[in-house]
Simulated scan of single mutants.
Amino acid sequence: MTTASCGRSCEGIDGRIREIASPYLLDLDLRRMNGEAVVHFGGCSDHRDTEILRFFGEIGERAPGSYGLLHVRDDEDHGRENDVLVVRMVRGRVGEHLEPLLSPCIPVLEDPSEGEGTGPPGPRPPAPGRRPGVAPPACPACRR
């Protein structure tokens, strides 16, 4: 997520990062890239962290030109437990949207558990730009 203005905003953001950062759930820091201040979020939790979402919104308030995406999967959110949501910040304003490329989680990301769903998932569609039955190109690094 990139912040549009810095100075005092960055000081406040950096202070909040120190308050809420957790080595168990999140990689969170303020970096400089290409002359811009960038807040980096990383982690893999199986439910929504309201403090992180609140902080994402705070960034937009402190630096109104900010933009970025935060993907959230909350298996405890009734009615949305099979969805990945994208929290989008544009010009400092935050909104939630369904992430169609990663949802529904079952069967897109995971196979159904035993007794879940109507049976094994059918054949997966080819990746965008790929024709059915055509093997992907060999990996240049490992030649497989």
Results as ranks from 00 to 15, higher is better:
D77Q: 14
V90Y: 08
P137D: 05
A138Y: 08
R88K: 14
L25Y: 04
G119P: 04
F56H: 01
P100L: 09
I59H: 08
E19G: 08
C6W: 12
E11I: 07
R91G: 11
R31L: 13
M89V: 08
D46P: 14
G68C: 04
A141F: 14
P107L: 04
T50E: 15
F55E: 02
F56R: 00
M33T: 10
D29H: 13
H97D: 01
V94G: 07
R54S: 12
L102G: 00
R131A: 15
L109N: 09
G43A: 00
D83L: 15
I106P: 10
V38L: 08
L26N: 00
E61T: 09
P112G: 11
V39A: 01
E110Q: 10
I20S: 08
V38W: 06
N34K: 10
L70P: 04
D74M: 10
R62A: 15
T50P: 14
V87S: 13
G65D: 00
L109P: 02
E114F: 04
Y67M: 08
V39Q: 02
V39R: 08
V38S: 06
N82Q: 06
M33H: 07
H71Q: 09
P112W: 03
Y67P: 00
D83A: 05
E51I: 13
L69N: 14
G12T: 03
F41Y: 15
T118V: 15
M89A: 01
R80E: 11
P104I: 02
I20R: 06
A63Y: 00
P121R: 10
G115Q: 05
G42L: 12
G129C: 04
H97R: 06
L53W: 03
G68T: 02
I13F: 04
R91T: 01
P104K: 03
G129K: 04
R91K: 11
R54G: 08
R80H: 15
D29S: 12
S66Y: 00
P125K: 13
G57H: 05
E51D: 10
P140A: 01
G115A: 07
T118R: 13
H97W: 10
P136V: 09
